[in-house]
Design a protein around this nucleic acid. Structure first.
Lengths: 198, 198, 198, 198
DNA sequence: AATGAATGAGCATTCATTCAT
DNA sequence: TATGAATGAATGCTCATTCAT
């Protein structure tokens, strides 16, 4: 594939990402997409066989390029590790809101392909996180609960925070700096909200 | 409005709820809707002025009828209170998955009306929850953090759990019984995951 | 089905017959068809599910209504019988050229459906003709050849004459009166072209 | 024109012949054609100015190269001559079904050009055949009928036999060997089907 | 000599909506 | 109250064709 050809494909995917995020799959028309890319609708079909094909390419690409929000280096403390996860996750996904939206649309629209995508995505997101909790449990550092339950509940805190910041446009959560949020989320998850004196 | 008229309106809204949940607003056609209700498409327009109108009526109705997941009676312990909230919330929303989906669609589709809806909905959901945490804080029962931050993080645990059970179709989370989930969520939120001995 | 509904369907089929005959299936657009009927394209789809559906309905209807070109009463002579067949066949099909054309298009375009149609049509055309020749053979009135071979060769004379008159626009054949043609065709088929004195 | 250029043109025409025969003019796309030739669509337009142009070139070429099915040498008997015509005609056209189909499509599609083509073709086909019958008539060998009427009716037998074998896929007619068919067709045309004793 | 890239016009089909009855 | 009949505008997609390279 010539470099131009790849570029055009990328252009289309990039434009599609924005539009699908804003209007969903059904809500995005090929006309809108062509206009955004600055080509004719016919041109779209020189690069992709169908609107669905563009959608799939978009999801597929995301699945490949998904960046880990997990710390690369071994952290000394659980707390630091969790804090870094929070910051990483929110940082990466705040910049690319469309991805979050597209994932949610995919989860909601529920055709065979998007179901598969969501499944793969969740696997990718949790494989490493699960392991982290497993290790901590086996090291007796944290309570002996099912590691994936812990991973998912922790992720729930992240995920909902992300939604508050990017989709629900919660004023407060949007203004908090990430460090501050990370500290509180990590703290609550580790030690709970009860007053120590209690 | 005659009772029949009200009934028909209700029938339409009920059918719309299912369809919008399954296919989104754009993905639901008036043809599908009419078929589901068992009337002609023309009849739809005797009761509502447009497809959007049906959507708005649906959201509005939900906003009125939203049932509190908060405990009605004063509970003795925070733990019991939180547990009851978890159980209530999951119970009510598991039965009515379409509502969750419609809310998410509304949040994603982001037109003026749905934005407004999401805002109102969140207000309704959080007003009482916020107060609960405020009280506990003033009673020094829990750490002195911003009450709405606490409320939202706690809600994040609930909400993500709901998504896992109803939209992401997480096998494990779907099988857990609600009591079990409630205990763990409440426990983690209150005391954290760290080993007490640490 | 209300009478109006039937009428519209019939109107569409009638218009389609003309257009498909003139331009073939591919060459006929739904726009042309709608214009000819005097309705919008959308209306076409209230009565038929697709362009193909219209085509099929058209063929199906023809298959039902196909009129026999065979003599109803028992003729005294073979010659009279054949002459009547020629006249009947040419008369019926000259009035309805579109049918001939559509059949030929169907035979040429060769999709699964039209293949089936052509097969059924040929069966309908030949079943009785075959029997006629069988009888004559068993009565020793004509040479002892395979009856269907005879039927088909005789039909070839008819069919080609029809093409000459309706599709190839052969001047002479178009001007001959049917009686004249019938006599010669029957005569040649019965006694051949050789001079009797030879 | 360089020899390569001629070759490419020929390649295109050959591919077009197959495709037009299978799908008709409208049913054949330039994409299909380019793919079959193994070049880009753009290349097609280096050799022909339009899709129609290819079609015309194709017909024109056929018109030039049409091979006579008439016997080259003077045959002793009419019977032998007719038999040879039948065999020749069926042999040549069975091998090249696409030609028959294209001619029929041309006759059906009825635009100015194809009308002209069909006319020329028929002239070519009948000029010599007509003469043959003229001669036989003047030699008093056959009945004194209009020679072109005879020629066309005889041709009808050939033509319908060809259709049965190539387009209608008549099982029996496809299996008969040509010699057998030729004998019967010639015999019937010459002496008729009536029992001699009658 | 060949083609990659592009497209305006058109295709069959569906949409939400209207209106006379 | 309900709907059969209708449609303008749009949808995803394909077509034959052009042109710079």
């Amino acid at each position: 594939m010539t470099p131009t050809r790849t570029n055009r494909k990328q252009q289309i995917i990039r434009a599609a990402k924005e539009l699908f995020a804003k209007h969903g799959f059904k809500g995005t028309t090929t006309k809108m997409l062509a206009a955004k890319v600055g080509v004719s609708e016919a041109t779209l079909y020189k690069y992709f066989t169908s609107k669905e094909d563009i959608y799939y390419a978009l999801l597929e690409e995301k699945l490949q390029n998904i960046e880990s929000y997990l710390p690369t280096s071994q952290k000394t403390s659980i707390r630091k590790t969790l804090e870094e996860i929070v910051v990483n996750f929110l940082e990466k996904n705040t910049d690319d809101v469309s991805f979050t939206k597209i994932c949610l649309f995919a989860a909601l629209e529920q055709n065979a392909y998007s179901k598969n995508f969501v499944q793969k995505l969740r696997k990718k997101l949790f494989t490493h996180l699960d392991k982290l909790f497993e290790n901590w449990i086996s090291e007796k550092k944290i309570k002996e609960l099912e590691p994936d339950l812990l991973a998912k509940l922790f992720f729930g805190l992240l995920f909902y925070t992300l939604l508050l910041r990017t989709i629900f446009h919660d004023e407060k959560f949007s203004q908090y700096n990430l460090q501050y949020l990370a500290q509180h989320i990590a703290d609550i998850f580790l030690t709970g909200v009860l007053n120590e004196t209690t």
